[in-house]
């Protein structure tokens, strides 16, 4: 058989042809190794007959020895070739499996990356949906006051220690009336009906309104940002039976006559009252120490102002302050 008559050329570039050629050669080697057994058996029978029938036994024995040696060498060659091909085939398969493992690992890594990306995108989308409310730290809401958050939820400030809404409302209304309406001052010698207030008083109460914004910001960060901390008498009123009422505002009764301005006016008013209170306390510290009952009477007057707006008792006590 010549090289040109071979169906598979040795320079086969295609991988399938090379592998097919190797498999054919491997199968031929296995067939030769399998036929070697029958050849050895037939040779043994031939030499046995020759040794018994032929007279030249020495020649038969020498021929048998040569044939046995050649048969063993041929068998070793065949076994060596077959084992080499088997080892080579196993190594190729092992390498192929290793490459397949690497490819599968790459695919798993890609899938894991895709899953992580999907999880990250989902979490980012969910985090964008949630709008966390942001409030300025200057906004101090009294108890029961509600305001709309950025997400539309009602938020209520419960940090103040005046639990009673009505008390707070009366107190704030009375103080606002004393500050903004600038009621006529009444001297000690005048009757309570007359309204002639000295200009020093009005200047004192309008101090916070004309105060620059810088000072206002400083006051917001001061520890006295809760203006009602000093009003111990008002605080003590929270333990009265009136305090047992619910702190949430009654929706049927608005807390401000103008609801549109509620969100703007309420946070700033406690600071004004606090400024007024601090200033007044600084001036009348001695008077307050000498007359501790004056503050109680003042608060009672302020609270009773709800019943009659023309109660001049308030002005009288304010003048005494």
């Amino acid at each position: 058989m010549t090289a040109s008559s071979l169906p598979i050329s040795p320079e086969a570039s295609n991988y399938d042809e090379v592998s097919m050629q190797q498999s054919l050669m491997f199968s031929d080697s296995l067939k030769d190794l399998k036929n070697l057994r029958g050849q050895l058996y037939s040779a043994a029978e031939y030499f046995e007959l020759s040794y018994t029938n032929d007279d030249q036994k020495q020649i038969v024995v020498e021929t048998l020895k040569d044939y046995a040696v050649k048969a063993i060498v041929n068998t070793v060659d065949h076994l060596g070739s077959v084992t080499y091909k088997v080892n080579n085939l196993l190594d190729e398969k092992a390498d192929e499996i290793s490459r397949t493992e690497l490819r599968i690992s790459c695919i798993e890594q890609r899938i894991r990356t895709c899953l992580q990306y999907i999880d990250h995108e989902g979490s980012s989308q969910q985090s964008l949906i949630i709008n966390t409310p942001k409030f300025h730290k200057r906004y101090i809401l009294p108890v029961g006051e509600t305001m709309r958050g950025s997400d539309g939820t009602k938020l209520k400030y419960q940090g103040s220690f005046i639990d009673n809404v009505d008390d707070w409302y009366q107190f704030r209304k009375a103080v606002r009336a004393t500050i903004k309406e600038t009621p006529p001052p009444v001297s000690k010698g005048r009757p309570p009906g007359q309204s002639a207030r000295p200009p020093q008083r009005s200047a004192t109460f309008s101090f916070t309104s004309t105060m620059p914004k810088k000072d206002l910001d400083k006051r917001t960060v001061s520890p006295h940002r809760f203006p009602l901390l000093r009003s111990g008498s008002v605080t003590n009123r929270s333990v009265t039976p009136m305090a047992s009422r619910p702190t949430t505002p009654n929706t049927s009764r608005p807390t401000n006559p103008s609801p549109s301005l509620a969100g703007r006016r309420y946070p700033s008013e406690p600071k004004k009252s606090a400024s007024m209170r601090f200033h007044a306390e600084g001036e009348n510290a001695k008077d307050a120490e000498q007359n501790p009952s004056k503050s109680k009477r003042l608060l009672k007057a302020l609270l009773s102002r709800r019943k009659s707006r023309k109660d001049e008792t308030l002005y009288r006590y304010l003048d005494e302050y």
């Binding site: 092992a94 499996i97 599968i104």
Partner: peptide, 8 residues
């Protein structure tokens, strides 16, 4: 090889 193929 069989074990690797099973895992794969």
């Amino acid at each position: 090889l069989n074990e690797k193929l099973d895992i794969l």
